[in-house]
């Protein structure tokens, strides 16, 4: 009975619902793809690079350095020598620093945070560096279509609002048979922090407000790459787990990484009671035996190639001649 009466109510509510594609009229009603406040993110990143003259930002490089290292492994699998590589959302150049003359002649770093982009001097890099200060979401404004041999993105796509749109722009910017390799935080990233804060808010305040970004699911990424028109897709997941003395060090390090909360309509303030409660819950629910607490960073890897006529293609479905049963 309950179910039946709910339907007309919903139908009526739909008539009054505003069109989701409407332009920005107030901070809390936004377009379909506005999840993150990109302006606030830029300020946070700039501030993180300035704190203690960049020292804070350098000591918290450990996650990005590790992932950049793993990305190099994937890049080295490609037996090709590049003239230029575009490092999209490069930050201070965790990945660009690892590139050498065997791989490319030049690297172009692009980031929306000017301070972070210029944190390291040119002498830190082995290859020629060009730095472009631009919004990652408007890639085609600064990069010509069909111009790039390779685009890499190491841990920046998780702050992109319009991920499908940016993937299309990346594909457009690539030359035919150009490659895109991306790594982004997603899936279960920081689930310990998310659940602890939610439980603490619920028990102390009686409601929740988001403090950890919504994450892209692994399954969605292959669909998005396919939809953007990439060929020969590879998507996989791996994890970096870091142990911290307590939740407070984790939150401080996240801030120094420039990874604070930037969800549109977020609450900028966490009550002290809630913080203390969350720290206690974090330890009780997720704590390690040695008294430290773990934080999981899940990384979604994506590799896609811009289609070209001379590129190897998968055979037609059903055209196989060998029965797999005979082989196995």
């Amino acid at each position: 009975m309950n179910r039946l009466t709910r339907i007309p109510v919903l139908a009526r509510a739909r008539n009054f619902a505003s069109h989701s594609g409407s332009p920005l009229s107030s901070p809390n009603t936004v377009g379909p793809y506005q999840v993150f406040d990109r302006y606030a993110k830029r300020l946070q990143k700039d501030r993180s690079a300035r704190r203690d003259d960049g020292e804070k930002s350098r000591t918290t490089d450990y996650v990005r350095d590790e992932v950049a290292d793993r990305m190099m492994d994937r890049l080295l699998d490609i037996k090709r020598k590049f003239n230029t590589i575009l490092d999209l959302g490069s930050g201070p150049g965790h990945l660009s620093k690892l590139l050498d003359a065997e791989i490319t002649k030049k690297v172009v770093m692009l980031d929306s945070s000017e301070k972070l982009l210029h944190r390291e001097p040119d002498s830190e890099f082995e290859v020629d560096v060009e730095r472009i200060h631009a919004d990652e979401e408007r890639l085609l404004d600064v990069v010509a279509p069909n111009s790039q041999e390779a685009i890499l993105s190491c841990l920046s796509l998780h702050w992109i609002n319009d991920l499908p749109g940016v993937l299309v722009q990346i594909k457009e910017a690539l030359q035919p048979d150009g490659v895109f390799i991306g790594a982004m935080f997603g899936g279960d990233t920081l689930f310990e922090l998310r659940t602890s804060l939610q439980l603490a808010q619920l028990e102390r305040e009686g409601g929740i407000s988001p403090h950890v970004s919504p994450m892209t699911d692994t399954r969605d990424v292959s669909n998005l790459l396919g939809r953007a028109g990439f060929a020969l897709l590879t998507v996989d997941v791996d994890e970096v787990r870091v142990a911290y003395p307590s939740m407070f060090e984790l939150m401080e390090d996240l801030r120094d990484m420039g990874e604070n909360n930037t969800i549109v309509g977020r609450r900028n303030f966490v009550h002290r009671d809630t913080l203390a409660a969350a720290s206690a819950i974090y330890k009780a629910l997720h704590g390690n035996e040695d008294g430290s607490v773990p934080a999981t960073f899940q990384i979604i890897w994506m590799i896609g190639w811009k289609p070209a006529p001379n590129q190897p293609k998968p055979l037609e479905r059903g055209s196989g001649k060998t029965n797999l049963k005979d082989v196995l």
């Binding site: 439980l199 003395p245 307590s246 206690a280 330890k283 009780a284 629910l285």
Partner: peptide, 22 residues
Amino acid sequence: RFAVHATTTCATHAEAYGKCIL
């Protein structure tokens, strides 16, 4: 300072609260 108190000074009370939530 608050972090030190929440994790060290008041560790026993924090643990009791954590256990209750658990």
